[in-house]
């Protein structure tokens, strides 16, 4: 059993959950998400977010639109789809049940 590996797996799953949650509040482009997730200490290296975003988009949970930027390269703004919203509410329920159960078990 490798603790670090388990942590990494957990973080990855939780990252997807958090990305959906953030995008359900408002649309954002990758660097904004990176900043928020880094501040919350959920992201170890920035690159992680790109395969996740691409996967969520290919699964139909996210869509995107391009926007020109005056200060840099064009930005890809991600939006949550209806499917993504449904998925998120499922995840939220699961998460609440999980934290509840884990708290009960670990704190006795």
């Amino acid at each position: 059993m490798n603790l670090e590996n388990t942590k990494a797996q957990m973080r990855k799953g939780i990252l997807e959950f958090c990305i959906l949650a953030l995008l359900s509040q408002k649309e954002a482009y990758a660097s904004e998400l990176i900043q928020t997730l880094k501040d919350a200490r959920l992201l170890v290296v920035e690159g992680t977010i790109y395969p996740l975003l691409t996967r969520l988009k290919n699964d139909g949970l996210l869509s995107y639109r391009w926007e020109e930027s005056t200060s840099g390269p064009p930005r890809k703004y991600y939006l949550i789809t209806q499917l993504g919203k449904d998925f998120l509410s499922e995840l939220t329920t699961t998460w609440e049940q999980l934290t509840d159960s884990v708290n009960k078990v670990t704190k006795g």
């Binding site: 490798n2 603790l3 670090e4 590996n5 942590k7 990494a8 797996q9 973080r11 990855k12 170890v44 290296v45 920035e46 690159g47 992680t48 790109y50 395969p51």
Partner: peptide, 17 residues
């Protein structure tokens, strides 16, 4: 900042960290 490919996939940030 962006991470090596193995870190990006989160396979083994363990060994790296």
């Amino acid at each position: 900042q962006l991470g090596e490919p193995s870190q990006i996939s989160g396979e083994d940030d363990a060994a790296q960290d």
